[in-house]
Simulated scan of single mutants.
Amino acid sequence: MFAGVDIGGTTTQVLLCTPDLDVVDSTEVPTPASEGGQAMVRAALDALGVLRARVPARLLGIGIGAAGVVDSRAGRILVASDSFNSWAGFAVTATVEEALGVPAFLDNDVNAFLRGEAAKGAVRGEPYVLGMTLGTGVGGALWLNGELLDGPHGAAGEVGHVPGFGDLPCTCGGRGHLETLASGRAIRARYGERTGRLLTARGVAEAAVDGDPDAIAVYEAAGAGVARAILIAAGLADITTVVIGGGVSGAWDLLQPSIRAALAAEPPVSGHPIRVVQAGLGSGAVAIGAASRARTELGVVAQV
Rank of each mutant, 00 (worst) to 15 (best):
A221R: 07
A155D: 11
R76S: 10
I239S: 07
G247A: 13
V269E: 09
V276W: 12
P19Y: 13
D6Y: 10
R124H: 05
V242H: 05
G61E: 06
F84I: 09
G192C: 10
D107W: 02
G89F: 05
G146W: 10
A39R: 09
A186C: 08
V209N: 02
N145E: 12
Y191V: 00
A265H: 12
T11Q: 11
L106M: 14
V79H: 13
R73T: 07
S183F: 08
P56Q: 15
V218K: 02
T12C: 14
T27H: 06
L134H: 00
N85E: 15
F2P: 03
R124K: 12
P169Y: 13
V96N: 07
A88R: 12
E126D: 13
D238E: 13
V5L: 13
A39L: 04
G164Y: 12
L168E: 05
L51Y: 12
D109H: 04
G196I: 08
G289E: 05
G125I: 07
G280Y: 08
R54V: 06
V70P: 03
L130E: 04
A233C: 14
G8M: 07
R190E: 03
R76W: 15
A67Y: 03
A285D: 06
T171H: 05
S292C: 13
D212A: 11
A91R: 07
A141T: 08
E28L: 10
F105R: 00
A229T: 04
G116R: 03
A43I: 02
H272M: 14
G36Q: 03
T11G: 05
S83Y: 11
V96R: 02
T133F: 02
R260S: 07
